[in-house]
Design a protein around this nucleic acid. Structure first.
Length: 720
DNA sequence: AGCACGCCGACT
DNA sequence: GTCGGCGTGCTC
């Protein structure tokens, strides 16, 4: 009886395609194969095998098996689950799962090995080479280097037959963790949490824990010990640590290396393709025990994953917003479920979703106390910008200026935090009132003085700042409105001409090495005032930093985003948590126009529980996450009429479902991006509704014109 | 995603 | 008269 192989291809096809299994190939689920697709040959993965012929149509045969490590069955399950959850084609998550395989496997390397033949004439240099070659084959260059002689000596020995050229497998050894190294010293609170998670691991099966501890409470030590417990309990166990940003991986890699004597496998977009290939293979065959990476590491082919740690679980960077849209924290929980693993969500300021799950008992809630004698909470002051405004055209209020000045006098460091890149977020013409926008988009152009350009942060468009208004032609009429970090730096330089000032934003720091250098320089006390965006808000430890000034604490409270309050609280808690992490007391000053706002009051009181309680009540009232679920549909296209017709048809086709409300269509807040008009629907559903199922069924009920692109975003974070 | 098939402008 | 632009549609 012939068999049919379902082959999933890493392409936007709606489902796996069926192929005939050729005589004698004996495929297995998870095999990589090459198959014909129309006129070309593509690679895919076998996701199912069943008996039968092609039925009514003749199937094309699988061409060949590709010799790459098989994709574990759990990964296929995960890929299919992720596609359904995200209301997208399975080819996208599959493509992510295969991202380590794009680079060809390492080829055998040329080396030379001893033959046993003695050279006719022996010299001291030749003796050294032959001695060095005893430890096994080496490349000629490496052998010469180790023997401390020139390459000519090696070549001479090859010519005389004492050494022969051989091919050896490329070095793909992976350093293994040493579990006999001493554990970290844990305080009682850390120990209790680590022990409880070790018990959960021992119990086996899917489990979830929320590791909830203020900045400086030592979450990393705790999960290092949980990782140690997992690795010790099962000699084949694998551990995955997810971090929100590449910039944090170096620090965490270092902690693991210290603890286990070997660097973990690193996985993120900055890792070179050959290294990725090595990492992928090592994960697939189990040699990689510990992986530290960004959200895409979730798709690696672990075969015995026992622990997933999602560090800084509240961080919005875990939400992938482009291409295949997913929330890595939520998918991590799903993957842990599929693998029967323990998932640990760690944060000083957990998301409301996770707190709610902990409240409901779905996650084990492990709270860490502040570490004795180290973390001192800063004094938080609200500066009412209505009562004590800065001078016109300036952004630092007199209160904050005085605080910075005092800090400078004491020889301590200040951090001025403003989550806005560039010099000014808006340029407008005083003559005609025109706001300069990106062509084909509704977003303002941001002025960057370092480069003298106007930049669209949405589309990447940039232009030289014009002399005259492009709209009315008036000369010298363009004015810069509002502050960015560059402008705050300018003001700080003017106010404190002798201070050493640096800016930390994605415009001054573009790689982990640059971030490292700036952080080291700050830690070494070579900077007095650091002006920073979000890039510096977390993960660093500056012993002499005692003042944090938040230029615009209201910034993320504006704009109708349901998570605005939460994000502001988290960001400010992180930023103020910077101040006074050591013996020196810290102070935080928050500039605000609405000091009475619940978020700011909770911050001032350092009262997370009060904030969470208020915010939860508000969300429950409105049926918003975590009490309800949201989804967005964004339809865009260059043809306004076709787009309008489509969204009307989609609106008319809304299925009538219990517990689901559909709002829209409305113009998206950024109604025009890159020349495409954008319309959006928002869907609110009860927790028990199969929202992906509803969305998939709905989308299928209206034909999409080919000029229109439709994106479904489950649990949207961005409301633009 | 690729790649072919398909109908309208400047060219050996 | 052709070469080729990229719009539209399909791939088991």
């Amino acid at each position: 009886m012939p068999r049919i192989a379902s082959v999933l291809l890493p392409m936007p096809l709606p489902e796996a395609f069926d192929y005939a299994e050729p005589e004698g190939l004996e495929l297995v689920v998870g095999d990589h194969v090459s198959v014909p697709l129309g006129p070309r040959t593509v690679r895919g993965v076998v996701t199912a095998l069943r008996e039968g012929a092609g039925g009514n149509r003749r199937l094309k045969p699988v061409l060949a098996r590709v010799d790459d490590p098989r994709l574990p069955a759990n990964v296929i399950t995960f890929v299919e689950w992720a596609a359904r959850y995200s209301v997208d084609v399975p080819g996208w998550p599959l493509a992510m799962a295969l991202r380590g395989l794009r680079h060809p496997p390492a080829k055998p390397e040329k080396a030379v090995a001893l033959t046993g033949v003695q050279p006719a004439r022996m010299t001291p240099a030749r003796l050294k080479v032959l001695a060095a070659a005893e430890h096994g084959p080496l490349s000629a260059a490496e052998l010469a280097r180790q023997a401390g002689v020139s390459a000519g000596v090696v070549k001479g020995l090859v010519d005389e037959g004492a050494l022969e050229p051989v091919l050896v497998a490329a070095d793909d050894s992976i350093a293994q963790p040493d579990l006999s190294l001493p554990a970290q010293a844990l305080n009682p609170s850390q120990k209790a949490a680590a022990d409880e998670m070790a018990d959960m691991l021992a119990a086996g099966g899917f489990q979830a824990a929320l590791l909830d501890g203020v900045t400086g409470s030592g979450k990393t030590e705790v999960y290092l010990e949980v990782a140690a417990a997992a690795l010790e309990a099962d000699p084949a166990a694998q551990v995955l640590v997810l971090l929100p940003e590449i910039a944090l991986t170096q620090a965490v890699m270092g902690r693991f290396e210290q603890r286990f004597g070997a660097a973990p496998i690193e996985w993120h977009s900055g890792v070179s393709p050959p290294r990725r290939r090595r990492a992928w293979e090592a994960v697939a065959d189990g040699r990689a025990r510990i992986v530290v990476g960004a959200r895409s590491a979730l798709f690696l082919p672990f075969s015995n994953l026992k622990l997933i740690v999602v560090d800084e679980e509240h961080d919005g960077s875990f939400k992938q917003e482009e291409g295949f849209i997913y929330q890595a924290r939520d998918l991590a929980v799903a993957r842990a479920k599929i693998e029967g693993a323990l998932v640990v969500l760690a944060s000083a300021t957990p998301s409301l979703e996770s707190l709610w799950n902990a409240h409901q008992g779905r996650y084990r809630w492990l709270r860490l106390g502040a570490r004795h004698g180290t973390a001192q909470l800063p004094d938080v002051h609200l500066i009412d910008m209505r009562a004590t405004p800065p001078e016109p055209g300036r952004w630092l209020s007199p209160t904050l200026v005085k605080a910075v000045s005092l800090t400078l006098q004491k020889g301590e460091q200040s951090l001025l935090f403003l989550n806005r890149r560039g010099y000014a977020p808006l340029v407008l013409c005083r003559a005609c009132g025109e706001k300069l926008k990106s062509p084909d988009s509704d977003s303002w152009l941001v002025e960057h003085r370092y480069t003298g350009r106007l930049v669209c942060h949405l589309t990447g468009f940039s232009m030289k700042k014009p002399e005259a208004c492009p709209h009315c032609g008036a000369k010298d009429s363009l004015v810069s409105i509002g502050p960015g970090v560059e402008r705050v730096e300018e003001e700080a330089r003017y106010l404190f001409p002798d201070a050493r000032i640096a800016v930390f934003s994605s415009d001054t720091v573009f790689d982990p090495a640059g971030a490292r250098a700036l952080v080291d320089s700050m830690a070494a006390g070579e900077i007095d005032i650091l002006v920073a965006t979000q890039a510096a808000a977390k993960g660093h430890n500056f012993p002499n930093l005692t003042l944090v000034g938040v230029i615009d604490a209201d910034l993320s409270l504006r704009g109708g985003d349901l998570r605005a309050g939460e994000r502001t609280f988290q960001l400010l808690a992180q930023a103020t948590g910077r101040a006074g992490r050591h013996e020196k007391p810290g102070r935080a000053y928050l500039q605000t126009y609405s000091p009475e706002h619940a978020v700011l009051q909770a911050l001032k009181a350092q009262d997370r529980d009060a904030f969470v309680e208020a915010e939860m009540a508000m969300r429950e009232e409105a049926g918003l996450p975590p009490f309800g679920r949201l989804a967005a549909v964004i339809a865009s296209g260059p043809d306004a009429e076709a787009l309008e017709a489509y969204v009307q048809a989609l609106a008319a086709a809304t299925p009538n479902a219990e517990g689901v409300e559909v709002y829209g269509p409305a113009d998206a807040p950024l109604g025009l991006v890159r020349g495409r008009r954008r319309k959006r629907f928002l869907v609110r559903a009860g927790r028990n509704v199969d929202l992906p199922g509803f969305m998939a069924a709905w989308r299928a009920r209206a034909k999409v014109p080919n000029s229109v692109r439709v994106t479904i975003d489950i649990d949207p974070y961005s409301f633009l």
